[in-house]
């Protein structure tokens, strides 16, 4: 699905990713955990194609294509989806119009015809149920005036609509109460299949009670310093990041 090799990225003079290696296969769920400032959000931004970062070294292959060569929109069209940590409010653009445009541009990229309006609306109805999103929100401006929980549910709703191959959930749990968390996680789990994959980026273990990962990676200072199974997340929750920090800080010095 996606292979990341020795990925280095910086913003300005500051190197944030310092050699990430990761392979995610179809059907897998990977969790990336780590303390604040370890580079978690940078990794998701670089993969999604945010232009603020310079990739200085390394390569990323996504379904056989060189991901880093593609503009953000083509990455999405190839099946990469980033659920934003802070979904953007776009006054004046309705959720429906936004999604129809997105869906049809993705279809056009793959040489498919536009989806008929009737089918599109049926799809909206079906997928909004998945995350218990009020159908009224669909006709409102994108994220405008949405609560924190509604914004995150809207991200998963979009993911359901666009049916990506690889979804990266960037701190999707942040700012969610337990009910919203459960709704979001249930939505993600329902979308899981043997053909797609998920990378869950989170600070806390909590979300991983609901979205159970196959692999857990600990990111620290721009590198994956430890990988393991789902029990690694529980270990981190119990012990905190201090032990890992100390271990790698001493290695560096």
């Amino acid at each position: 699905m996606i292979t990341i090799k020795n990925l280095h990225a910086s913003i300005g003079d500051k190197e944030i990713l310092r050699g990430i290696n990761l392979e995610v296969k179809a059907g897998e769920v990977h969790a990336i955990m780590g303390p604040n400032g370890s580079g978690k959000s940078t990794l998701s931004s670089v993969l999604a194609g945010r232009e603020d970062y310079d990739v200085t070294e390394g390569e990323v292959t996504f379904n056989g294509k060189n991901l880093l060569d593609l503009p953000a929109e083509d990455r999405a069209r190839e099946g990469l989806f980033l659920a934003f940590q802070y979904p953007v409010e776009i006054p004046g653009v309705s959720n429906i119009n936004f999604l129809r445009t997105a869906l049809n541009e993705i279809r056009a990229y793959h040489g498919q015809e536009e989806m008929p309006a009737k089918d599109f609306l049926a799809l909206v109805k079906e997928k909004s149920k998945l995350v218990e999103l009020d159908s009224k929100l669909a006709s409102r401006s994108v994220n405008e005036g949405f609560s924190g929980g509604e914004k995150k549910r809207n991200e998963i709703f979009q993911m359901a609509m666009l049916n990506p191959k690889l979804a990266i959930l960037d701190e999707t749990d942040s700012g969610l109460d337990i009910d919203a968390l459960r709704i979001v996680a249930t939505g993600v789990n329902k979308l899981k299949s043997k053909d797609n994959a998920t990378i869950v980026i989170t600070h806390y273990q909590r979300l991983l009670d609901y979205i159970v990962p196959d692999f857990v990676h600990i990111l620290y200072k721009g590198r994956i310093v430890k990988s393991g199974g789902k029990e690694l997340a529980l270990e981190m929750e119990a012990k905190g990041y201090d032990e890992i920090k100390a271990q790698f800080d001493s290695l560096e010095s």
């Binding site: 929109e73 004046g92 936004f98």
Partner: peptide
Amino acid sequence: EALFYLKARGIGEESARKLLLQA
């Protein structure tokens, strides 16, 4: 930010700009 959000959903640069200006 809004431009990147639209592009991250598969909407091309030009359509994304148009969508924002129309809005």
